[in-house]
Design a protein around this nucleic acid. Structure first.
Lengths: 205, 205
DNA sequence: AGAAAATACGAGTATTTGCTCGTGTTTGTC
DNA sequence: GACAAACACGAGCAAATACTCGTATTTTCT
C-alpha cells in the first residue's frame, strides 16, 4: 500500500483549491451528477492532479464534509455560551439556528452533503458524521437545559430536531433572500413547538 | 412527433410490470443509480420493450409518481372525514399520518421519488407534483380547522408540515418495525407542536 | 385470410465518467 | 548543483449506461 506523500506548500494549496471546486460543483449539480473532470476543471487543474491528492471522488467528498464539520463546530463554539441555557427557548433556538444557516449560505455545497437523499452507499459515512456532529451538539444543549430528561429521550429529541432542521434548511437557502427570515421564523416555530413540551413535562389538566 | 399507439391489453400489463419493476429498483438503489436495463430485467423484459412504452427513464418515473399520487389520494379519501376537523389535534394528525406511512411501507419506491434530495432537473416536475398534492391536502385540512387563518399563513404552515413529514418519513420506514411506532409518535409530536399555536392565536400574556 | 398495427427482442451505439499512466516540471535538501 | 520527492499534465482506457434499430412475433381489424 502506497504511503501518503509528505505534502509541500503547493500541494496543500491544491488540496484546498480542489475542495473549494468540489463545493462549487456539488452545489451546482449535486454530488451524484458531479464529475471529477468538472471539479478538476473548476479548480483549474488536470484530472490527473486531482487524483494525486484524492484517491477518488468519495475521498474528496469526505474531505469537504470534514471541513464543513470543523467550520460548523467553530461557528457554534463562537455562538454558544453556557448562559444560553437560561434563555427562553425561542431565543436559544434562534441562536442555534442562525450560525448554521450562515455556514450554509457561505458554503453552498453544504446542503448537497448534509441533506441529500440518495448518495452512494459509502458516502453515507461522512454524511452521517456531519449529521451526527450536529445531533450530538443539539443533544448536549437539550441535556443542559433539561437535566432530568432521560438520555434516550434526549437523544431522540435531538435526532428529530436535527432532521427538522435539515428539512427546512433546503427551503431556507434556496428561498429568495427576502423570504429567508420568514422561513427561519417557521423553522424556529417548528423546533420550539417540538421542544417545548420537553421542558414542561406532564402538565396537570 | 410520433403519436401514442393505441395500447392493447398486453401493452397495459407491460406498462404496469415496468412501473412495478421501476419501484423495486428505485427503492433498492435510488433513482439516480437505477439503470433502465436493470429495470427492464427486473420486469423480465428487454430494454427495447421498455422504450416502446416510455420515452425515457424520466417518463417512467413520472408514471410511477402519478400512480403514487393516485394511491395517496385514495388512501386519504378513505381515511378522511370532515368530522375529523373537530377531533383534538393530536388525533387528527395521527389519522393524517398513518395512511401516508402505510402507502409508503406498501410502496418502497415512494420515498425515492418523494423525498430524495438530488434528482435530475426534469424529475423535479413529477416530484413537485407529488409533494404539492400532499401539501394541498394538508392546507385543506388546516383551512377547515382554522377558518380564520389567512391563506398565506395556511399555505406556509402546510408546506412546513409537509417538509417535516417528509424528513421523518425516511427515518420511520427505514427503522426496525419495532421502533416504528416510536418514531411515528415523535413525528406526531413535532407536527402537533408546530400546528397547535395556529389554533390558539395570539394568547394574552 | 390478410394486412396493419402493436408488441418484443437484444446486440449494438454513442456518450459519459471515474480514473490511470507515461512523461515532464517544480520544490526541497544536502 | 545534484538528486529525489512531490507536483502536474492530459490523452486515453475500461466500464457503465441511456437509448436505438433492424427484425421477428402476436394481436386486432376488416
Amino acid at each position: 500500500m502506497p504511503e501518503e506523500p509528505r505534502r509541500q506548500a503547493r500541494g496543500q494549496r491544491r488540496m484546498e483549491q480542489l475542495t473549494d471546486a468540489a463545493a462549487v460543483v456539488f452545489a451546482e449539480v449535486g454530488y451524484a451528477k458531479a464529475t471529477t473532470n468538472a471539479i478538476a476543471k473548476q479548480a483549474g487543474v488536470s484530472p490527473g492532479t486531482l487524483y494525486q491528492f484524492f484517491a477518488n471522488k468519495e475521498a474528496l467528498a469526505e474531505a469537504l464534509a470534514e471541513r464543513y464539520r470543523a467550520e460548523l463546530k467553530a461557528a457554534h463554539e463562537q455562538a454558544f455560551d453556557l448562559s444560553m441555557v437560561k434563555l427562553p427557548l425561542p431565543e436559544m433556538v434562534d441562536r442555534m439556528i442562525r450560525p448554521m444557516v450562515e455556514v450554509n449560505l457561505a458554503n453552498p455545497g453544504f446542503k448537497a452533503l448534509f441533506s441529500s437523499g440518495d448518495l452512494p452507499d459509502r458516502l453515507t459515512a461522512p454524511t452521517r458524521a456531519l449529521q451526527q456532529a450536529v445531533t450530538g451538539r443539539v443533544a448536549e444543549i437539550i441535556g443542559a437545559r433539561v437535566p432530568d430528561l432521560p438520555a434516550d429521550q434526549r437523544d431522540t429529541a435531538a435526532a428529530v430536531a436535527t432532521q427538522i432542521f435539515a428539512a427546512l434548511l433546503g427551503t431556507i437557502v434556496s428561498a429568495a433572500p427576502a423570504d429567508r427570515d420568514r422561513w427561519i421564523t417557521e423553522l424556529n416555530r417548528a423546533l420550539v413547538g417540538y421542544l417545548t413540551p420537553l421542558e414542561t413535562p406532564a402538565h396537570p389538566h
